[in-house]
Computed example of a mutant assay.
Amino acid sequence: MQTCETEHHPYFGLWVTADGHVRHELLPNGRYDEARGTRESAYQGRYEVEGNYIRYWDDTGFTADGTFRDGVLYHGGMVLYRQ
Rank of each mutant, 00 (worst) to 15 (best):
R82W: 13
H9N: 14
D58M: 09
Y43Q: 11
A42H: 12
V49W: 00
I54T: 00
L27V: 00
S41M: 11
H24P: 05
V22S: 02
T60E: 10
D19Q: 02
G77N: 11
C4H: 13
G20V: 06
G13V: 05
E48H: 05
A42C: 12
C4I: 15
G30V: 05
G77P: 12
G71L: 08
G71C: 03
G71I: 06
E7P: 15
V49K: 00
E34L: 12
V49F: 00
L14Y: 03
L26S: 04
D59Y: 01
V79R: 08
G66P: 01
E50P: 05
P28N: 01
M1W: 10
M1R: 07
G51V: 02
Q2C: 07
H75G: 03
Q44V: 13
P28G: 02
C4Y: 14
D59L: 06
L73R: 03
H9Q: 13
A42R: 12
E40K: 14
D58W: 07
G61S: 08
E7S: 14
R23W: 10
Y47R: 00
T63A: 02
M78R: 14
Q83E: 09
V22F: 06
L80R: 01
H75E: 04
V79D: 03
T67M: 02
T38G: 14
R46W: 09
T17M: 02
D70S: 12
D70G: 09
I54S: 00
A35F: 12
R39T: 15
Q83W: 08
F12M: 05
H8P: 13
G20A: 03
F68G: 05
I54N: 00
G20W: 07
R31E: 09
Q2V: 11
R39L: 15
G66Q: 02
E40N: 10
Y74A: 01
T38L: 15
G66S: 02
L80F: 08
E25A: 05
T63N: 02
L80M: 06
R46T: 14
T67W: 05
R31C: 10
T17H: 07
A18V: 13
H21A: 05
R55W: 02
M1Y: 10
M1G: 12
G30M: 04
D70I: 03
Y43H: 12
Y43R: 13
H75I: 04
Y56M: 07
C4E: 14
G61R: 10
D58P: 06
G45N: 10
F68M: 08
G71V: 05
H75L: 04
D19K: 01
Y74T: 04
V72M: 04
D70L: 06
G37Y: 14
R82K: 15
Y81N: 08
F62N: 04
G66T: 02
Q44I: 14
Y11V: 11
E34M: 13
T38S: 14
M1S: 10
Y56A: 01
Y43V: 06
G30Q: 06
Y56V: 02
R31D: 09
G37P: 15
G51N: 05
R39D: 15
M1N: 08
R23M: 08
D33C: 12
E34S: 10
A35S: 15
T60M: 13
A42I: 08
M78P: 07
L27S: 08
R36N: 10
Q44Y: 11
V22Q: 02
D65C: 02
V49N: 00
G45E: 08
R31M: 10
E25K: 07
Y32K: 10
R23E: 04
T63Q: 03
Y81I: 01
W15D: 00
E5M: 13
L26T: 03
T60R: 13
A42L: 13
L14R: 03
